[in-house]
Structures are given as C-alpha cells and as structure tokens.
C-alpha cells in the first residue's frame, strides 16, 4: 500500500505477481504473439499477462489468438482515457497516447486469459474492429464508440448504443464533465 510516485517502483509493482498466481502459459502465448506481430510487447500487470501492440494489428492479433492459440472468446472490449495521467507506466517500446483500447481474451479449452492493450492517439481515434473475428464484440465496440468516440473500422453497425442518437460528445472522455447537460428549453425565459 502507499503512494507510488517514482517510475522504478511502479515498474517493479507491475512486474511482480501481485496475487502470486502467475500463469506461465498465458505469458507464453503473449510472448509467442509478440514475436509474430511487429512492434508488440508482452508484459505483466498485477500478475496477469498483457500484450501491448500497435493499434493497426489489433484484429490481426485477435485472429492469431483465435486460430493458433485456441482463444475462443473475446469477453470484453473497453477503453480508457488517460488525459489526466499522461505520465503513466507503459511497457518499454510502447509510446503512450491519450486513449487505450483494452480487449480481454479468454481461452476456454486452455483456461487462459490474455489482455491486449493498444494505444490510440487523440487526433485519429480509429482501431480495426474485432467483429470479423469475434462477433460478440459488436455491442462492446459500439459502447466504446458511443462513450469515447473511438471508431472501429469494419464494424457492421457502428452507431450509438447507450446514449441517444442525437447526443453531442462522448461522456466517458475525461474532458466531458459529468452533470452538465445543455438547456433544453432555451426559448422559455424563466424568472432568472
């Protein structure tokens, strides 16, 4: 416990198996994929296997995981806006950007989990869609598009899913303040 400020301590924390249940097999998969895909880096985070790669390769990594490593499901796709903590820790060789898209893969037959993280720049928030490999990510990618404004290339139906269709902006971005909604009835001049 305690505040961790210096980068070395953070790195150590990331590399240590916090829960003691380090599963070497998932690390092996991460290393194998990292060796195949250009610019990909295998890392550990709190004892879990993580693969960081270039965003252009996300769908390709999904395909490799499904076809060669028996990863049967993509259980979750989400994103993080790092606007306010730009100095965060990232594995060496990865350039931090404002957004991160995070996909969690699960292999039922091998009982492994692997998390793939790609950095997405603010000025060109586009990522290849995983729907061609795992159709179940369709809803999740729509949610990320809706709440973060990250577009998924090749998604069959990239529309807003949670917010109204005419909503302006993307609420889960850090520069979208909560509880600020444009006034609906401007014409009616109230008492104030």
């Amino acid at each position: 416990m305690g505040e961790q400020t210096d980068a070395g301590a953070r790195e150590e924390f990331h590399e240590s198996a916090a829960d003691g249940a380090a599963d070497g097999a998932a690390d092996g998969v991460a290393a194998a994929v990292a060796a195949r895909v250009e610019g990909a880096v295998a890392a550990r985070s709190c004892g879990q296997a993580v693969l960081c790669c270039d965003r252009r390769h996300l769908a390709e990594v999904g395909r490799v995981l499904r076809d060669e490593h028996a990863f049967t499901s993509c259980v979750d796709v989400t994103a993080v806006d790092h606007l306010l903590d730009a100095d965060r820790w990232v594995p060496p060789g990865i350039v931090p950007e404002r957004f991160e898209v995070v996909a969690n893969f699960l292999s039922h037959p091998r009982n492994l989990r692997l998390r793939v993280i790609v950095e997405v720049p603010e000025d060109d928030p586009v990522v290849p869609s995983l729907t061609g490999v795992f159709p179940g990510t369709a809803f999740a990618e729509r949610e990320v598009f809706d709440l973060f404004g990250i577009r998924f290339e090749g998604h069959p139906d990239l529309t807003r899913i949670l917010m109204p269709d005419d909503w302006d902006g993307h609420p889960l971005r850090k520069d979208a303040p909560p509880a600020r909604i444009p006034v609906t009835f401007k014409a009616a001049g109230g008492p104030r």
Partner: peptide, 18 residues
C-alpha cells in the same frame, strides 16, 4: 485510501455469467 497505480481485470461467476 490511495491505490497503487496499475490496471487489472477480475472476473467472477455471477448468476448470469461472467
């Protein structure tokens, strides 16, 4: 309380699934 910088995904079996 402060939580050390990091990220994690934890999954359990709810009545409806993961």
């Amino acid at each position: 309380f402060g939580v050390p910088a990091g990220e994690t995904y934890v999954a359990i079996e709810s009545p409806r699934g993961e």
